[in-house]
Every structure is written in C-alpha cells, then in structure tokens.
Design a protein around this nucleic acid. Structure first.
Lengths: 174, 174
DNA sequence: CACAATTTAATTGTCAACAATATAATTGGC
DNA sequence: GCCAATTATATTGTTGACAATTAAATTGTG
C-alpha cells in the first residue's frame, strides 16, 4: 500500500519535523555532555540553575515546562552527583529549594563552549539560529496557551481555546 | 545567584526551544489522539504505515529516526490493539514486516482532521507552517549528518564531521 | 482555635528513547 | 559445505515525561 500525497504525509508534518529534530539535537549534545557526566535534560536543569539559583521545584518546572514527576528523580540524580543541593524551605516546608553546589557552579565553565560547538553542527548562521529559536518559542507559547492542561484546579488563564483562528474548519486536501 | 546574560541563557538556546516546543506539540496532540486510543509516538508509526505498508522494522526506524529498542515494544502495543500485524519475512527470516490491519487502515479516516485541528492550535498560517517545517527538516538532516553514531560497523557516509564550518572555535562571551 | 480547601512535592505506573548486548539468519571467503 | 563476519531484530537496564494519586504543610473562614 502506497499513499503518496495526503495531509497525513509524514514529511509534511510540523509535528514530526519538531519531534525528529529535537531528538537529533539531543543526540548531537550527547557526546559533548558525556564529557561533563550529565544527560541532556540534566543539562537543561543546570542551564536554568546557572541563570538563577536557588529555584524551587515548581519554579524550575515552570521555566522548563516540566512537572515534579519528571524533576524530582532528575534532581535526585544531580544531587547524588554533587552538582546541586535540595533543601526544604524554612518558612514554607512544602517548598524544596534546589541550589547549585560549588561543583555545580564550576561545571558552568566547562559548559561555556557547548553552544558554539552545537552551532557548528547545525550548519546555521547566527541570524538563522535566532530566527528559528524565536519562531519555536512563539509556537511553544501558542501551543501551551491553546492546550487545556489536566490541572486539578481551574486554569487561571483566560480560557483554554475559545476560538483562536476561525479559519478553515476543513479544506479540500491538496 | 543571578546571571542575566550569557551564551548559556536558557531562553536563547535553540536546543531548549526545540525541546520545549516538541513536548508542547505532544501535549497538544494528546487529547485528540486519546480519542483514537493511541499515543503520539504510536501516531507517528501509523503515519508512516498509512503512507507505505508493509514496512520492515529497520525501514520504519530509518523513516522515523528510531531504533529497534524503541520500535519493537511500541509495535507490540499496536499489535495488541489490533492496528498492525508483525510477521517474519519468508525469504529472510531476520526481517520483520509490519503491516496495517483492516482496523489500522480504517483508523486513517479518523486521523484525517488532526493536522488541521493542530494547525489552529499553532496560530500559524500555512506559509509559516511550511517554512518552519522546512527549516526543521534541514536542521535535523544537518545534525544527523554531523553527529557520529554509535553504530557498530563503519559509518557508510563520507565522514562524521570533518570540519563543516571552520569558524569561531571559541569567542568572547557576550 | 478548628477544619476544609488549597498548595507543593513526592510517589506510582505506563509509555518512550537509547546504549549495550544477545540471538538468530544470512552472506562471503576459502 | 564450513565458518567468520555481517545483518536484522529483540532484550535489558537506565533515564525521561507525564497522568493520577498521595502526603504534608499552609491558608482562609467560621
């Protein structure tokens, strides 16, 4: 069975282009991060902490768009490696503050060259890189705003998806 | 500790924009795919099979950039759901042919509206969508070409990464 | 103060992604 | 034909992502 052209064609899907390029990026980082002894998601957590430390689990999750089910075990591994500390906040024992250790701070210096290493692997020039990054951030924010979350309480945003673009409910396939 | 500007700034990273937008896309698809009873990676496999069935595990992996360690259990779940069949090839018993069942083919009709549903959630117009998709495919292919794989045998491509762009091996941070 | 509602993390279970390894079939010298 | 190398898939173990649930602390209202 061969279906050459359809809106469901794999190579036309933005979703698959996103998915496969994101995985490809992870694989590109892997050998570089292996020298630092961390994985790609762990690197993202370190990026957030290098920018601001300490951060609560919730605040970290808000910046990375990840929940505690992902961050808690991930942070425990970073703690075992000695890169971060995890402590209950004194004034509100519900909060867990995640902070860089001295070793965690020192790792930043070794990570500094990474963005330029990766830039070379992308084949992009700086303006293209910034343009693509900007487009993706816009896309992400739009998707987050228009996707109803499974949160228990009310969404404090205006509305999940009232009717963002009243265009083509259905159009003839190309 | 606050570090306002650095090349390591989280929100400047293409890698994080990719990562977070890809996860956001997965979450956007989730409630729609739940009605079809499949997950997002399962949907990608079905997309590939709707385009061409049967496909060997290896060929499927080549199209999706996934290996057998991911695809084998995923395909088994689709088989249990009755959407695909898995059979050893007669002429080469090493190959496993994955083919759509009648139910798998029927599911395509219910998936047809999805791309347009998602398009609305993205807030993009068609030209922007196609441009972004194209940029991401180019990026993915460049990253794959420049990332040395852990394959046992020799890489049959020219070379992992001889010296694609001999620019800035290191530059002063901004 | 008491207590229900809320907030915050952690836990549990399922599905994924992948390195490393194992298993089985095939191919190519000899 | 025999056997080493190769090819193709499956298995195992680790890390991640997330829904659903649990546990604990805090807040607000009476």
């Amino acid at each position: 069975m061969v279906t050459p052209t359809s809106l469901l064609n794999l190579d036309r899907q933005l979703c698959f282009a996103l998915y496969s390029s994101s995985l490809a990026m992870t694989k590109a980082y892997k050998p570089l991060l292996a020298e630092l002894g961390i994985t790609y998601p762990q690197y993202l957590v370190m990026l957030a902490l290098w920018q601001h430390s300490p951060l609560g689990v919730g605040e970290l999750g808000a910046r990375l768009n990840l929940d505690s089910g992902t961050l808690t075990p991930l942070a425990k591994r970073l703690q075992v490696m000695g890169l971060i500390d995890r402590n209950r906040c004194e004034h509100d024992e519900r909060n867990v503050e995640i902070s860089l250790t001295a070793a965690g701070k020192l790792l930043q210096a070794r990570a500094e060259p990474l963005p330029l290493c990766i830039l070379q692997l992308t084949g992009l020039q700086i303006p293209q890189l910034e343009s693509l990054t900007s487009q993706l951030k816009t896309l992400r924010d739009e998707l987050v705003a228009n996707t109803q979350t499974r949160a228990t309480a009310a969404n404090h945003s205006v509305s999940p998806n009232p009717n963002p673009t009243p265009t083509a409910e259905h159009t003839p396939g190309n």
